[in-house]
Computed example of a mutant assay.
Amino acid sequence: MAETVLEARGLGKRFGGLVAVQDMSLSVARGEILGLIGPNGAGKTTMFDLLAGSVRPSAGSIRLRGKDITSLPPHRRLAAGMGRTFQIPRPFPALTLLENMLLARQHQTGERFWANFTAPRRVAAEEREARDKALALLDLVALHRLADEPARVLSGGQRKLLELARVMMADPGVVLLDEPAAGVNPSLLEVLIDRIRDINAKGVTFLLIEHNIDMVTRLCDRIVVMAQGALLFQGKPDEVAREPRVIEAYLGGAAA
């Protein structure tokens, strides 16, 4: 059995009197692509925000490679090896794609002021390495030709590709993808799906929340379904498609 790299146990979140997530548990195995789906209002976004660290849980715990990260903020989770993308990418529009990529690099010696004077060769070497890595990732997502263009020229789909490349600058072992297909045209969506597969094949684990069921079915090894803030069902894509409770949740308005 594959090692569990990300695990949530009994997660709950209340916003005043509203229970958004209740007693929600899931686990993601190393190298897996796990999908998180559910009808509108099911609690998916809150669950995702809990895992990403942008929302603190009212109950439960989150573990990354066996270590409790429940109280860690997002930047500490990134340092621990878990990155995330956003449903609406927000690159720095006036900066070039390459500059946007370089800003995402973690733990550079040159970030410390005096290191630029005491270890200039090391700083220069790391800068060259970061540039090479950024250009390679831009090439991976078919944006290399735009490396020196400002990010404002990108389409919505290209911004999603840039977002995926940016998160990989931090070398995460686990990536949370927030609705990667939203706003992406069909041709770029195929590129995005292929790039996710390529990165996954190199050992990166993915958890994605997505409304595009076709994309989820094509990409995911397993699917977790939420309704009314709780776990409804989990299984392989074909099992989920046949499950009466899932069909009722989507067609019968269980989470309305």
Rank of each mutant, 00 (worst) to 15 (best):
S71A: 14
S54A: 12
R77A: 11
I88G: 00
L154F: 02
N100G: 07
A136N: 05
P172F: 08
E179K: 02
V123E: 07
D132Q: 11
L137G: 03
A151N: 05
R63K: 12
K160Q: 15
G83Q: 02
P74Q: 06
R90Y: 02
F117Y: 13
L103E: 14
L95T: 08
L102P: 03
L143G: 03
L161H: 04
G81V: 05
I69K: 04
K133S: 12
R159Y: 04
G157R: 03
L95W: 06
P89H: 03
F113K: 15
A115C: 09
R77D: 09
L102R: 09
V174W: 00
L146Q: 13
A130R: 01
A104H: 04
D139P: 01
P150F: 03
L103C: 15
T109C: 10
R121M: 07
A124G: 05
V123M: 11
L97N: 02
L72A: 11
G83C: 04
L78I: 15
D68E: 12
H144K: 15
R90V: 06
A104D: 13
L177I: 02
L146D: 04
R166N: 08
L138Q: 01
A59S: 15
A181D: 08
T70I: 11
G53R: 07
K67L: 15
T70G: 07
A52Y: 00
R112A: 09
S71D: 14
Q108Y: 05
A142W: 01
P73I: 13
D178W: 03
R105L: 04
L78W: 01
L103D: 05
E149A: 14
K160Y: 06
R63Y: 02
A170E: 05
V123N: 10
D139Y: 04
A151M: 06
L102Q: 13
L140V: 06
N100A: 11
R131Y: 04
D132A: 15
W114G: 07
R90S: 12
P57N: 09
E127G: 01
L97D: 04
I69V: 13
R77Q: 09
G83L: 03
R105T: 14
E99V: 12
L162N: 03
M168D: 01
A125T: 09
